[in-house]
Computed example of a mutant assay.
Amino acid sequence: MNEPLTNAYYELLEEIQAVDFVLCELTLYLDTHPWDNEAVQQFNHHAHQSRQLKKQYEKQYGPLFQYGMSYSGYPWNWKEAPWPWQV
């Protein structure tokens, strides 16, 4: 990515991280409380939200995951930088 990163880039990346943190915490909770229907519903809601945010990120900024979990544009765009873990 040759253009400078905007505030929108960082805000979207931070939102993805926040939602994924909630998913991590809900996973730990549900490991010990598998019958908590409200928590399961919250997990599913946040899982959907996470997928939507990541889809939005990839549409705007390029691949987010490797090993077939994200599609590449043509030409191969994994060489574009910075990657999310570099910012």
Rank of each mutant, 00 (worst) to 15 (best):
Q86V: 03
V19H: 00
Y61V: 01
P4D: 01
L64I: 05
V87D: 10
M1W: 09
Q60W: 10
G68M: 05
H33K: 02
T6N: 01
A81M: 07
A81K: 10
Q49G: 00
N37V: 13
E58V: 07
L26R: 00
H46E: 09
Q49A: 09
Y9P: 00
E15Q: 08
A18D: 06
L23H: 02
N7A: 09
F65D: 12
V40M: 11
T27N: 04
Q56W: 08
P75W: 10
K79R: 15
T27L: 05
P4M: 03
F65N: 12
Y10H: 14
W35T: 13
V87H: 07
E58G: 02
T27V: 01
Y29M: 07
W85Y: 12
K59E: 15
D20N: 14
E11D: 12
Y57P: 03
E25Q: 06
L30R: 00
S50E: 04
Y57V: 04
A8T: 04
Y29Q: 07
F21W: 13
Q17T: 08
Y67Q: 14
E25P: 00
Y57N: 04
A18K: 08
G68C: 04
W35E: 13
H46I: 05
Y29A: 05
N77M: 05
W78R: 09
E80N: 10
Y71A: 15
Y67N: 15
F21H: 14
V87P: 04
T6Q: 06
C24N: 15
T32D: 08
S72W: 07
P34T: 01
Y29L: 10
Y71P: 12
A39H: 05
E80T: 06
V22P: 01
E14D: 11
Y74I: 12
N7T: 07
Y61D: 03
D36E: 13
S72R: 11
Q66I: 15
P34G: 02
L13R: 04
E15R: 08
M69Q: 11
Q56R: 15
L30D: 00
V22G: 01
I16A: 00
Q56P: 07
F43N: 04
Y57C: 04
E25T: 03
V19G: 00
H48Y: 11
S50A: 12
E14P: 02
Q56N: 14
E80Q: 12
A47C: 09
M1Q: 11
H48V: 10
H45F: 14
Q60P: 05
Y9E: 01
T32K: 09
E11T: 10
Y74K: 13
W83E: 08
N7I: 06
L53F: 09
M1C: 09
N77A: 03
L13Q: 02
Q66C: 13
Y74N: 13
V87W: 04
P34E: 04
D36T: 04
M69Y: 11
F21L: 15
K59Q: 15
P34Y: 00
W85H: 13
W83T: 08
E15Y: 00
V22R: 08
Q56S: 13
Y9S: 02
A81Y: 07
H33N: 05
Q52E: 15
Q60A: 11
N77P: 04
K55G: 15
L64T: 02
N77W: 03
N37W: 11
Q60T: 09
K79C: 12
A39W: 03
Y57D: 02
M1L: 11
H48F: 12
Y29F: 13
A81D: 03
W76I: 06
